[in-house]
Amino acid sequence: MTKPITILVVEDEMIIGAKISLLLTKLGYEVTGIVPKGEEAILYIQQNAPDIVLLDIHLRGQMDGIDTAREILKEGHKTVLIYLTANTDEETFNRAKQTRPFAFLSKPIQPQELQRTIELTVERILVQREVNLQEDKPLPQETNEELMLLQDRIFVSSKNKLVKIFINDILYLVAERSYCQIFTKDQQFILSVPLKSVEHKLQTAQFLRVHRSYLVNIKAIDEISQNYVFINKKAIPMVETAKEELFKRLNKV
């Protein structure tokens, strides 16, 4: 049975915290707690180990959100951090960035933005769980080899055999530590090679690294918004530099 994804909200404005909790609950997620202080959040995480922490960056008290995040990381917790913030100056942003958050959500929280961010975060967690399961199993010899590339297709190792994937059928790839995952319309494959290696193999204008964790097939993009591209109804985060490169390539088509 799959363990449900659990979420902790750390917000000193309890009305805002309750509103976020209600939105998440309506979306079908399990919010296990709302706490107003960093010290309480650290104690809660020690006892309950939530998968995701929505953390107000400007917590009042002795510890702000960034101090809290640093302590969480120092203690080695595996929870995924998402910052909540109304206004963040450059200095604060740079401090926050050092704690390696998965995302920043701007206040007031927009339901659609919250939904997309949590969906992406949950996908990352589920991929990591699958990778952990794979790590616990002895890998067949061929999975330690690089994937094979032949003009319009690649061959990847899956269940002790090589499987052909046409390059045009690849929608996007997701990085996870030393592994990566390939998504097509109907299938997904976990590879025991880093995304960088696959990106090097797929040296073509057809693929673009839109985020440190995502390599997308430009031909598969259905929609483009301010901070996301959409492929097969999946919202994929996109950094500003990648957006500029994407439009350059699209203008050449």
Rank of each mutant, 00 (worst) to 15 (best):
E223I: 07
L215N: 01
D51A: 08
M148V: 14
Q181N: 12
N87M: 10
K26E: 10
E176P: 00
Q151P: 09
S106Y: 04
P36H: 13
I66S: 05
I231Y: 02
R209A: 07
T99K: 10
I52W: 01
Q181Y: 06
E130R: 15
E223G: 04
K196C: 00
L8E: 02
I167A: 09
A41F: 11
Y44H: 15
Q187G: 03
K161A: 05
N160Q: 06
D12G: 04
T121R: 09
V9W: 03
E119A: 12
R153D: 02
K26F: 07
L195T: 03
L24E: 08
I72E: 04
Q62D: 14
V80L: 08
E123Y: 01
I82T: 08
L27Q: 10
E39M: 09
E91R: 12
E244D: 07
K19G: 03
R249G: 04
P101K: 08
A205Y: 05
D222T: 09
V229N: 07
Q98R: 11
D169W: 04
K233Y: 06
R100Q: 12
D169S: 15
S213N: 11
E123I: 00
G33Y: 07
E240W: 01
A49W: 07
K78L: 10
L81C: 07
I20A: 01
F207D: 10
T68E: 03
V198D: 03
L162Q: 12
F104D: 05
V31C: 02
F247L: 13
Q188I: 02
I109A: 10
Q110K: 15
H58D: 13
Y179C: 11
R212I: 08
R95L: 15
F207V: 12
V31A: 01
R153G: 03
K164S: 10
V35S: 05
F155W: 15
T204I: 02
E40V: 05
G61I: 14
T204Y: 07
I72R: 08
L173Q: 05
T241A: 02
Q112Y: 13
I57Y: 06
E199A: 13
L133C: 13
R153S: 12
R70Y: 04
K219Y: 06
E91V: 15
V198L: 13
I66R: 02
L191G: 00
S157N: 15
N227K: 05
E11H: 09
D12H: 09
S225I: 12
R209F: 03
L250K: 09
K137F: 10
Q141S: 14
R116S: 01
K37T: 05
D152T: 13
V9L: 00
Y44W: 14
V131S: 13
D64M: 11
I16K: 10
K26M: 05
F102E: 04
D89Y: 08
T143A: 14
E135G: 00
T6V: 09
D152R: 12
N48D: 07
Q47I: 08
S213P: 00
N251Q: 06
N217M: 06
L120W: 08
A41K: 10
R212W: 04
T184S: 03
E240A: 12
V53S: 01
L114I: 14
Y172L: 11
T92N: 08
R153K: 15
T117H: 01
D67C: 06
